[in-house]
Design a protein around this nucleic acid. Sequence first.
RNA 1: GCCGGGGUGGCGGAAUGGUAUACGCGCACGACUCAAAAUCGUGUCUCGCAAGGGAUGAGGGUUCGAGUCCCUCCCCCGGCACCA
Length: 966
Amino acid sequence: MEGYDHKTIEEKWRAEWEKNHNNIAKDLSDKKKTYLLVEFPYPSGEGLHVGHVRGYTALDVVARKHRRQNESVLFPIGWDAFGLPTENYALKTGRDPREVTKENTDVFRGQMKRLGLSFNWNHEVNTTDPAYYKWTQWIFLQLHKHKLAYKAKTTINWCPKDKIGLANEEVVDGCCERCGTLVEKREREQWMLAITKYAKRLYDDLDTVNYIERAKVGQRNWIGPSEGAVITFEIRSANREVEAPIEVFTTRPDTLFGATYLVISPEHPLITKLESRIVNHAEVQKYVEEAKKKPEIERTAEGKEKTGVLLEGIRAINPGNKEEIPVFIADYVLASYGTGAIMAVPAHDERDFEFAKKYELSIKQVIAPETGVRRENEEERNGGVGIVFDPARQRYAVGRQKNGLARLFSGGVDDGESIQEGTLREVAEESGLFDFKHVEYIGKTYAHYHNSLRNVNRLAWASAFLVILDSSDVKEVRHESHEDFELEWITGKDLWNNLVEHNIEGSTDHWLWFLRQGIGRAIDLGYDTESDKAFFAQSPYTGEGILTDSGEFSGMKSEEAKKKITEFVGGEMKTTYKLRDWVFSRQRYWGEPIPLINCEKCGWVAVPEKDLPVTLPIVEKYQPTDTGDSPLANISEWVNTTCPTCGGSAKRETDVMPNWAGSSWYYLRYCDPTNKETLADFEKMKYWLPVDWYNGGMEHTTLHLLYSRFWHKFLYDIKVVPTPEPYARRTSHGLILAEGGEKMSKSKGNVVNPDDIIKQFGADTLRVYEMFMGPFDQAIAWSTDGLVGVRRFLERILRMSERLHDIPLPQELETLLNQSIKKVGDDIESLRMNTAVSQLMIFANALQKEEKIPKEAFLTFILLLAPLAPFLSEEIWQGLGGAMSVHKEAWPKHDPSKLVGEEVTIGVQINGKIRGSISCPAGTPEATVLALARAEANVEKWLNGKDIVKIIYIQDKILNVVARDA
RNA sequence: GCCGGGGUGGCGGAAUGGUAUACGCGCACGACUCAAAAUCGUGUCUCGCAAGGGAUGAGGGUUCGAGUCCCUCCCCCGGCACCA
């Protein structure tokens, strides 16, 4: 053997496969279909990245396996070729972006073929092909027709460097996602897509798809629904005239009675509307101007001190208690969320609290943390122990014990407050669990409990923790349900005795220990309004609970009160979403022209379907104009046209679509890439859709997925596509980092080029290495040493192929063979490629150890290796006389009865510790195994002089003998 | 702060609640060789002469048995964030 000449092998089979059309996806076959999708690349000038290779190879392995399971597999690829880098490159070099794109896609295609990726090349699509973007434009026109595309004057995010408007989603930390330039605000007419109309469905239908959790959570957060109420406040001017209603959105209508002022955003229309009524209008106007100037990044910066201006001359009426409250404008309220106005409840909201403190506004507490109602009587109160700690509010009280039951009490009845307070001080200081400033208050609380608990039916506060002395004391926790309250009792064994013994009054050690261990149970506390007012002067309580000071709603639980109060004030329960409509216009050249015409008489008119596509004209200059218009605006012969409706003179829209457009529906076009009548034949889509498995980068799991789900749902509604969701399953691969763990980047010069690896080590080595390097969904650093290890493995396989013998399979190998078939198959389906490769190595190692390698077993090994290392496997397979391509051979099936060997090794544990192991035939009954185990000297030694209490036997795996001293 | 994902040898990492450290890398030793490379073989968590003991970020808990489940906490990575 002349060694492993990967270059010759790979070139030979690539040519052979191309000639024989190894993989054609057959439409409408009666076989089971599988549609495997990988994110199509943006064909940049740099060529394919090793990160692409990771995702593409993984699904290629899946595709190859499924084809061999006699399924009809669609595994297409294409080019997401519109976009800024190509345009910028064209701009710099003066070349036509079409040419540049063609060159780049040729490079990518060549690389993919060299990698042995078995794409269905006859389904290739290119978003910049007029025959493709005709349908992108068509979809846009459908959206327009259904009023989901609208033009709106918006403050847009403007990147001064790229001279392009950005969607909110493309602004990262206030900077342009691509170039990092600080984004400015500009007013501009933009085409918008009403994705918010689909917010609920996009959210709810996530339950119907199988996406990795991260992707689902990402989408949920992005859509960001919050249940709340829209409540109307009346505005009155100084002369008490009713001026205008103002709507606020709140998720906490239950706190309405605690709303002590109103805040509107600086952009709120009310400011202009009530201009004449606002006494300090000049001051207000100044604040508004300043807010406008500030970039969003500054306005929303973390920890920024809140500012605002009181609107003098007008007041709002709290519809709950009819109290008159002041109205402010403040930039911490965003115009873009909810109604752009809020009712401020400083007692129960961090931001409102901060604002109220600064401007000395009244803080009215209307929610008490929910607990039960407690009854207490004098007879029950004796004994003395424990400390109650409320970690949420960092409050202590003292507990007492009686008849083995520890329960809340007033404490210190006999020894007086001084001792207890002193102790509490120590606890507080030493625990380090809370700010010492609360201790004063604790002292009062304690005193207060002393009194209040004599009274019955106190409304209780706080989920507090009762801490008792020693965990060994806890015998059980008993839950009692009463008509109007619930209690948890902790019963202790010798609690009382322990306390006396430990002289607990003077010792804080145990208490501290318990606090730190977090041992304790929620019980209830009494409270009094004065102390609580004092407490809440220090921090707002933002949780839910029981209403107080809320008129007829006092005593009601938050959940119920939300609905009742909203109803009471004539408000409306409503869900709002963080999701914003999608800014769809780009003032660029290299994108799909928006197929609309603006006619002075008829307004915006759609280009008739027969005139699609509106093709991009070839221009001299790709430079965006300084006015912010697209380069297309300079081509008057293209811009000036006639109105399709009235025939009069009209102008074309010169904005183009963002590059999300083409990628939002490409998986549909793959089903039928050459169709001239429609975006794809309905029957073909019905056969292939939904995509069974979509893999791509983590970075696309939010936006791209959301946008394409939106388009798909819209197309489903207008009956163009047959399924409500595009993708049944979504996985994502982790990033490949440079050796050393840094991100690969051109500037750092640490980029690994797949071409170099293929040249030096071969595509098979690269493929197997990338599958083996680590868990598929995790980021992982490149390791050339690891790559070399894989190369050695493949070389070894090739050498082994020359030492084969037609001999029967030894029994242990048969077991391993069946295990390997099962494990490799299962692992591929769940993308555990690293352990699939590892299993293949284990199998190969075992085969190699044989003096004569059984040919049958080795051939099965090759059948399993083939999806991962397609070239070498084919070489060996056909070299050994395979009649056809290994990639057409049926995927091996395992024999379930042969997964366990005849002999098994069973671990023997004594009291859970491994003390030995025995070998016996599989399926040996417990009694025999026990006898065998006891025959082991070591095992018997450990059992010597002990009584066997219990035997646990897990078939063929483990025997655990529980023994106790005799 | 919130939401996700993690923390296991010198390194990448394995492990349906059932013999932790598979597989690979690295390292050491041996065989082959004049020699080296390659290859093949053996060993490689830790303390201990041994018998044994200890170790999966820390500390508790549940269990016959915990890397895996529960609680408290620490650290790292990613995302989001004045969202009312």
